[in-house]
Structures are given as C-alpha cells and as structure tokens.
C-alpha cells in the first residue's frame, strides 16, 4: 500500500513538474495545442465528404466515426500527456539512458514512462472531448462513461507501446519497429473495425489491438452492452499485466549484462 501511494505521488509530481515547465513557454505551448486541434479536425474532413456519398458504412455513420475519433484522440492525448515516455521506451533502452531510472528508488517502469509529457497531446485531449460532445445529441450525459473508456484506451495504448518498445531488450535498437507498430495501432484504430476482412479483424483484436482503442469503446458509447464493457476492462487489465511482465523480464536480461550494445 505504501508503495502505491509513493508511486502515485511520483506520477503526480512529474505531471505537475512537466506542466509547469510547459507553462514557462506558454506561447509555444498554446501554439502546439491549437495546432494539434486543427490537425485532428482536418482528419474528419475525409469522413464528412465520404458520408455525403454513402448513408452508412457497415453500420457506421458520421456520428459513429466521430465517436471513434473522440475516444481515440482523448485516449491518445491522455497517454501522451501522462505517460509521454512510454512511446520512447525503445530509444531509452537502446541509448543506455535506462540506467538513470535504475539508480533511483522508484519503480523504474512507472518512473520511465511518466517522466515526459507531450505538449501537443493536450490538443488531442481537447479535440477528443469536443468531437465526442458534437457527435450526437445529449452527449454530455454519457461523459463519465467517455472519460472512463478514454482512460482504458490510454492504458491499452501505453501498455502496447511499452511492449513493442521493450523489444529493444532483445534485439538492440527497436526504435523504428516500435514506432511503426504504434503508428499501425493508431492508424487502424481510426477506422471502424467492421470494414476490414475477417482475417485482419482477428489481428486487430489481438496482435495490434486497434479494435480496443477505437471501435470497441466507441460502440459502447453508442450502445452500452455490459458484456462488452467487461471484455474491454478485462483486455485492458490483461495487456497492462503483459506489458509489465515483458518489461521486467527484459530488465532482468538487461541487468544480467548480456544485452546487445547499440551505442556508437
């Protein structure tokens, strides 16, 4: 119990510290947030045009796709704001910077992932909220569920990033592969999972769990089915445990000293 309080303090401390340092360059910060907001908004343009030509696509309409965008952007934003370094795990391991986190008293994985905040990601959070509210009537009523699902989405993304980043423990510099894997997750999550052929759909529920980042939570917001909510929570818990397992297994290998040196 004492440990988890300590960890929570560390997370909160980093969050505060990162935010304060962002505020020191307020102009650049606001510019990045607004830039990202516009950036995300323009992505919806495609769907707006497409749904002028088609009524629905495999059961999804513009409102449904906007809900997907809302959840993905909100979760993506949360993950990058609170755990910005989770997406740089491969780089940190490969460059040898991990040693720094190992010398400190806190849990190395938690410490590593929270020690960086992406500033433009605040724009994603804002965009996610706005798009979700605008996607349909009376959306503010389901805001608590939206926030909960956004949190789960963020956890799935972070855990996935840690898993692919941890590949560096085994194969040296996995930076490019990890980046590609995370990009694939984000790309696929923005499309309704039902448009893909069945074989691809299986992949999207397992190896690249894009369904749990986009379509599954979005469907829950349209139609709250309890068994699906339980599935979503179970999957999140599972992938978080796997991520921690993979990271610590790799860490043991790292500490035993037979890692591949990639520096230089």
């Amino acid at each position: 119990m004492g440990d988890s309080i300590k960890t929570a303090r560390l997370v909160a401390g980093y969050f505060r510290h990162n935010l304060m340092s962002a505020m020191a360059y307020r102009g650049a910060f606001i510019l990045q947030v607004v830039g990202m907001l516009l950036n995300d908004l323009m992505l919806l343009f495609f769907w707006w045009i497409l749904f002028q030509r088609l009524p629905t696509l495999q059961g999804w309409d513009l409102g449904g796709v906007m809900t997907i965008y809302g959840v993905v952007a909100f979760g993506f934003g949360l993950a990058h704001v609170a755990c910005g370094n989770a997406f740089r795990v491969a780089q940190v391991i490969a460059s040898g910077d991990l040693d720094y986190y190992l010398t400190l008293p806190a849990d190395p994985l938690v410490h590593l992932i929270v020690s960086r905040m992406s500033l433009p990601a605040w724009g994603d959070i804002l965009f996610g909220l706005v798009v979700f509210i605008l996607a349909g009537p009376e959306r503010w009523l389901s805001l608590p569920l939206f926030v909960l699902l956004g949190l789960l989405t963020a956890l799935v993304m972070t855990a996935f990033a840690v898993i692919v980043g941890s590949l560096s423990f085994w194969i040296g510099n996995a930076d490019a592969i990890a980046l590609q894997a995370v990009n694939a997750l984000t790309t696929f999550s923005l499309y309704p999972v039902d448009i893909f052929p069945p074989a691809v759909r299986v992949l999207l529920y397992t190896v690249i769990p894009a369904a749990f980042v986009g379509s599954v939570p979005a469907a829950l917001l349209e139609d709250l089915r309890w068994q699906n909510l339980v599935l979503m929570i179970a999957f999140t818990a599972g992938i978080v445990l796997v991520a921690a397992g993979v990271f610590y297994r790799g860490l043991r290998r790292y500490e035993s000293g037979n890692r591949v040196t990639v520096r230089g």
Partner: peptide, 29 residues
Amino acid sequence: IEEVMPAYWIYQKLLFTVGGLFLPLEMFP
C-alpha cells in the same frame, strides 16, 4: 516562431484534405 511543428501539421493536413491526398477533388462538393 519558437516551434514550427504546428505549422507543418497544418500544411500536412491541408495536403490530406484540400490537397486531395485521401480523396480526389471530384468527390468534393
């Protein structure tokens, strides 16, 4: 300006949309 990335994002997204990267112009209203 201190940070040029936002300018790039906007340029990139203009290519995505009005540049016709995702949809040919014929599909636009």
